[in-house]
Design a protein around this nucleic acid. Structure first.
Length: 264
DNA sequence: TACTCTGTTGAATA
DNA sequence: TTATTCAACAGAGT
């Protein structure tokens, strides 16, 4: 599930623990969630560290602790962060539990497509510093968009929008929403989008990111009425603009919904 | 029960 | 270098 705004929502769940010390880190190092990181070091070095701050970039989150300790979390498809009472017993899919005096910070992920990465050192971890700039920042210009589309000119625009190195935070439903709002057919080759279409695409990328953050990102409420979002899940979904029955097909390996009438 | 679907992404291949 | 396919995993839906 988690795309840009859901990630932001879950990140803020752990804000409850900011300022408090970690007493214990419970995890099972052999879990797939910890692939590529030193989970034993995490278990050893987190206790005693104080949670200072967190930030989300696209689908990535970083939690910064005292003593130069960081963890990054990616939620994958089914990952969640939540807060439980301090003595809460970890369930089957609760892969990381950070105990504080007043609460437990819990990361769960049944499918384990997500991951946790540990870092201790001076300054920002390299993997964090090298992430692309937010689509809602001034750095995401029309020229940056055009470059990304040209680099993948043969790829369908739907598949291109899912590339995290260019469109951090965009996931399957957001990509469909962006294309529907910009009235662009998901199979359009990315390289063929220019002029007014490019301008419309740029505008709807920002509108969808901002709208999602404002609604889903704040309190997990649904996006605004009138968005494709409310229709795209069902086989019987209708275009909110003209009532046309939506088409559903796999594009770029993902289920895609669009209006055959207004998306050209 | 059996089979299909899934809001992700990285590794392996072409 | 870029595009495509598939697997990692578990639960929900039909």
């Amino acid at each position: 599930m988690p795309e840009l705004a859901e990630v932001e929502y879950y990140r803020k769940r752990w804000d409850a623990g900011i300022g408090a010390k970690i007493l214990a880190a419970e995890l099972r190092a052999e879990k797939r969630i910890f692939r590529g990181t030193d989970a034993h070091a995490m278990e050893r070095e987190l206790p005693g560290a104080r949670l200072l701050a967190s930030e989300a970039r696209g689908k990535q989150m970083a939690f910064r602790f005292s003593r130069g300790v960081w963890i990054a979390i990616h939620l994958g498809m089914t990952g969640r962060l939540r807060v439980e009472p301090p003595e809460f017993p970890a369930g089957k899919h609760d892969h990381l539990v950070l105990r504080q005096k007043e609460r437990a910070l819990v990361f769960s992920d049944p499918r384990q497509f997500g991951r946790v990465i540990f870092f201790r050192g001076k300054g920002e971890p390299p993997w964090w510093a090298s992430l692309p700039k937010a689509l809602t920042s001034a750095a995401f210009t029309r020229a940056v968009l055009r470059d990304a589309l040209q680099r993948h000119r043969k790829l369908s625009i739907k598949a291109t929008l899912l590339l995290q190195q260019h469109f951090p935070g965009i996931g399957n439903w957001m990509a469909d929403e962006v294309l529907w709002q910009a009235r662009i057919h998901p199979l359009t080759p990315s390289g063929g989008i220019d002029g007014a279409h490019l301008a419309a695409l740029w505008k709807s990328i920002r509108a969808v990111c901002l709208g999602a953050l404002r609604h889903v990102g704040e309190d997990f409420s649904d996006p605004p009425r009138g968005w494709l979002f409310h229709e795209r899940w069902s086989r019987r979904g209708k275009c909110p603009r003209d009532g046309t029955q939506l088409k559903r097909e796999t594009i770029g390996g993902r289920t895609t919904a669009w209006c055959p009438k207004c998306q050209m």
